[in-house]
């Protein structure tokens, strides 16, 4: 890594050297010089902040805001994948079309189910792990880093492994079930497939969320525990009466982030499918909204319809955001 000094050392080109506070001679030449510098100084103070935040906002407008809004515009047109720049006005046809499609509702239900089944156990386990990591531990870095190892694994790599682990005939998980005397399960179909896809999400994100909870736990003032202990509260009671209430804002935050993440599940559902299609199993068993969007846009080649799906997902997120702000306001006033 190059040392920062080598970069920082050369004097800044054209850098204004605004008037210092050092006393300067009172000759008129100096006066004029000072006025000029002070104007430059004012300009610097006034405009530099905008210049510093401008690159972020320019990039955001070009590659974030504009595409997001344009999705809404594209959803009112019929656009073919083969000619993505030819747009033909279609009104609300794309929306009526997807709302009439049973697979849209199927995908919405699957997303909801996978969202709940992946988020709730994930956050509950993360909370438990965080509580354990919050003890004085030997090798605390080791535990934390190994919890985070799945986070280093990509969706693609993780899903490819879990396809094998969840294999119907020779998979490790069915072998273990058989070992315990439970009948093997077809993880590519029905409820089991949704649970399998959720498992991948849980595996990848539990450790990450545990670290978030751990950070929040370490911020709880020690006195709260001390006075609880003085009142004779057991550790278990302390967890429920001190730790959990203090973590409420953090819990809300992770719930929102995980919920948003759940609406976007795509790679897991795409790559888990042993038939290698984009329908999420032969009976659309685990097709999520994200995968449905891909199927409509890139398999059936209707980008306009895919835009309508994206816009619908956006509307769902806005509803989630509103619910979240109502809940957090209520939490704030109650505490």
């Amino acid at each position: 890594m190059p040392s920062r000094h080598s970069i920082a050392a050369p004097p800044v080109k054209g850098g204004a050297a605004p008037a210092g506070s050092r006393p300067v001679g009172s000759a008129p030449e100096d006066e004029r010089q000072r006025a000029k510098l002070s104007r430059r100084w004012q300009r610097d103070l006034r405009w530099s902040p905008y210049a510093f935040v401008a690159p972020f906002f320019l990039l955001f407008i070009a590659f974030g805001l504009f595409p997001l809004l344009y999705t809404g515009w594209a959803s009112l047109h019929s656009v073919e994948l083969t000619a993505p720049t030819d747009m033909e006005w279609a009104g609300l046809k794309n929306f009526t079309r997807i709302f009439d499609d049973e697979f849209f509702w199927n995908a919405a239900r699957n997303t909801l189910f996978i969202g709940i089944v992946s988020t709730v156990p994930q956050l509950a386990m993360a909370m438990g792990i965080a509580h354990l990591l919050n003890y004085k531990l030997r090798g605390s870095t080791f535990w934390r880093v190994s919890m985070l190892a799945p986070y280093a694994t990509s969706v693609a790599a993780a899903t490819l492994v879990f396809v094998l682990l969840f294999g119907r005939d020779y998979g490790m998980i069915n072998w273990a079930l058989d070992f315990l005397g439970i009948n093997p399960v077809d993880w590519q179909a029905g409820w089991a497939s949704k649970i399998a896809v959720s498992t991948i999400v849980i595996w990848r994100w539990t450790g990450y969320n545990a670290l978030i909870y751990l950070a929040a736990m370490q911020a709880i003032p020690h006195d709260l525990y001390e006075s609880a202990a003085l009142d004779g509260a057991s550790r278990w009671r302390q967890f429920f009466h001190v730790t959990l209430p203090s973590l409420r804002p953090t819990i809300l935050f992770t719930v929102v982030v995980s919920t948003i993440g759940a609406t976007q599940i795509f790679g897991e559902a795409l790559l888990f499918d042993a038939s290698k299609g984009a329908s999420g199993g032969s009976e659309h068993d685990f097709q999520t909204l994200g995968l449905y969007l891909y199927e409509q846009g890139w398999v059936n080649q209707h980008l306009g319809r895919a835009s309508a799906i994206a816009w619908t997902m956006f509307a769902i997120l806005i509803v989630i955001g509103l619910v979240n702000s109502v809940i957090s306001r209520r939490l704030r006033t109650s505490s």
Partner: peptide, 25 residues
Amino acid sequence: LLLVVIGTMMVPPQLSVIPLYMMVA
């Protein structure tokens, strides 16, 4: 502006892929 920054963290980039795809085309 800071509120805008925080707000954009909540919008997943996946929702913008179609216009981006059109741009790329």
